[in-house]
Design a binder for these strands. Structure first.
Lengths: 195, 195
DNA sequence: TACCTTTCTTAAACCAGCTTAAGTTTTCCC
DNA sequence: GGGAAAACTTAAGCTGGTTTAAGAAAGGTA
């Protein structure tokens, strides 16, 4: 069974899903490492579901530094949601961090899918409900927790993921500079040695 | 027509809504200024829709300082969503900043409401879709923008709201100390005088 | 009106995290 | 395999924002 259908079933607990019909609204695409799925400033017409691999969403700040705001692993959705829903240009770039296979849906098909299948309305309601709750927790962590503790927490929660991504991308996601991350790592190693 | 029904109509563009039936799932409650709607650590069994007034959601950090993470004005929903959906104790306190009237719904009724009325499934899907998009923008602003600029932006976007809330609450929402906010305000006044 | 409590301001000392810059290691790709 | 580019490290100096502490203003209550 397709990973998207499995995910819908897992989230909604629906007993039966018209899988072929639902999948016909999507197009499968594969991107190589560092491939660009969405360019900053261009019309944002696609919404991506990650089947295999890893994406990141970022923008370039006034110093020319890339600021990563989000990652998407398997079973995650990614787009510039505000732009996608309002048919405006994307404020962000979306890039593959590894070879990545996605399902892509157009905004027209997204509307159709939701209006035709009540289970999809429920699915996205639940997906957003969770994503919104997670996003609030993230605001708390990123803005109220000392940066070194935030790094520790992230490391303990996603140890495998940290191995998969460049450190400067991780640093910008966590909200600090690569230099500072380097220093943190050095201190952690020292800490361990002294135990 | 009740503000909630108006809001559902506005968001979903539904032609007709079974308003009395839907409203029967809720209970109206009124809280005085500084009244507590939800206590940190207690079971989170209610979800609030603000009819009139203003709420805030906060927690107390290890220094004993109250950290405000969210406000809710008219037509906004508020609860500790993660706790509400999982029936766990709330990580936050919810308090009225003014005399506030809300609609409250229990988690059982929330489930029933969504399963019985497709329009409510669509309504919450859209509410969360927007809230999630807004939350991501907020992460960008709070973590990548200099604090003085973030204050300016907030001030220009919600000038009336700033008058309604204590400055120390605003400071903690924006992610800095009341002392620093005081300094920013002083500098703004100076800036204007020199124009 | 007076008293107590909370909020807001001011200013000096301090520090977490940034900037800059140079060196080292790894990756990319011809 | 070799050369260039990109990623990572290290360390010194700096700055935006916190901490601390004290006084002034505002709000609540009798």
């Amino acid at each position: 069974m397709h990973p998207l259908i499995q995910h819908i079933q897992k989230i909604t607990a629906a007993p039966e899903i018209e899988d072929d019909l639902i999948l016909s609204f999507f197009e499968t695409k594969t991107f190589r490492k560092k491939g660009i799925l969405q360019e900053e400033g261009k019309r944002c017409s696609l919404y991506f579901f990650v089947v295999k691999g890893c994406l990141r969403l970022f923008f370039t700040d006034h110093n020319g530094t890339e600021q990563t705001l989000q990652f998407a692993l398997e079973d995650w959705w990614m787009t510039d949601l505000a732009a996608f829903r309002s048919e405006r240009p994307s404020a962000y770039t979306i890039q593959a961090l590894e070879v990545t296979e996605v399902l892509a849906i157009s905004s027209r098909n997204y509307e159709l899918l939701l209006s035709k299948f009540p289970v999809m309305e429920k699915y996205f309601r639940l997906v957003y409900e969770r994503a919104y709750a997670a996003s609030l927790l993230r605001i708390q962590l990123i803005s109220r927790m000392p940066k070194d503790e935030f790094y520790d927490l992230f490391q303990s929660r996603y140890p495998a993921f940290i191995q998969r991504i460049p450190q400067k991308v991780l640093a910008s996601f966590l909200g600090f500079t690569p230099e500072y991350l380097s220093e943190l790592r050095k201190n952690k190693v020292k800490g361990k040695e002294n135990q």
